[in-house]
């Protein structure tokens, strides 16, 4: 057992500011969607939601840039030959092994932070849902530049439904994400790692 410095300061800052924006957007978005004046007053929710959305766009662009040129992209590469096996092993662990005290099938290392399920879900969120969310959000703000109707339906409504669907899916991701981080060596291992940068109770990946 040892500790591994897994998350440098810039990454933790990015993560927590991103999380703050995510929560802000979720709360203000819910308030706007369901007219929950008691949660956030409407006249506050709208500019805050717009501001947070614009900032989130910047954070997402930083993420893409970091992956393209900053070296972080290696964690999001998929090896198609081993993927089916890795996915099965990881899923079996969450459904069975975790209840019988089986060892973690995936060992975190500086070179390989994410297990197969994490890699797939993060790719889906960051390169699938996030661009759709961001584009639909900006489309709301500049809807006058779009055609009035698309396939005979009001464009604003289509934009609204796309934005809504991706928002709900990201809310789902958030719940699963928060739960999954409790499945480390101890329930708080992963949370502490994202706060301090150090992944405690780390087993050396070179050992079998």
């Amino acid at each position: 057992m040892s500790a591994l410095y897994l998350y440098p300061a810039w990454l933790r800052l990015w993560h927590w500011l991103n999380a703050l924006l995510f929560l802000t957007l979720l709360v203000t978005g819910l308030s706007m969607h369901y007219s929950l004046h008691w949660l956030v007053p409407f006249e506050v929710a709208v500019p805050v939601h717009n501001t947070a959305g614009m900032l989130l766009t910047g954070f997402w662009l930083a993420f893409v840039a970091g992956n393209l040129w900053g070296g972080n992209g290696k964690h999001y590469r998929i090896d198609l030959r081993t993927l089916p096996h890795d996915l099965m092993v990881q899923t079996r662990y969450y459904l069975h092994g975790i209840f019988v005290g089986a060892p973690h099938p995936f060992h975190v290392s500086a070179e390989n932070k994410l297990n197969a399920l994490q890699t797939l879900s993060y790719i889906g969120v960051m390169f699938g849902l996030m661009p759709i969310l961001i584009l639909s959000g900006w489309s709301f703000l500049f809807s006058t530049a779009l055609p009035d109707t698309l396939f005979g339906v009001g464009t604003v409504w289509i934009v609204a439904m796309v934005h809504l669907t991706t928002s709900w899916m990201l809310a789902l991701f958030l719940i699963v994400h928060i739960y999954i981080i409790t499945t480390g060596e101890t329930p708080t291992t992963n949370l502490k790692a994202m706060i301090s940068g150090w992944h405690e109770g780390h087993e050396d990946a070179s050992k079998p």
Binding site: M32, H33, Y34, S35, F42, V46, P47, N50, T51, M54, W138, F140, L141, F142, S143, V156, W157, A160, M161, H163, L164
Partner: peptide, 16 residues
Amino acid sequence: AQALYNEAYIVGMSRN
């Protein structure tokens, strides 16, 4: 400024 202070959102427009 338009993006920040966009007044166009109408409650319910995104509800389904």
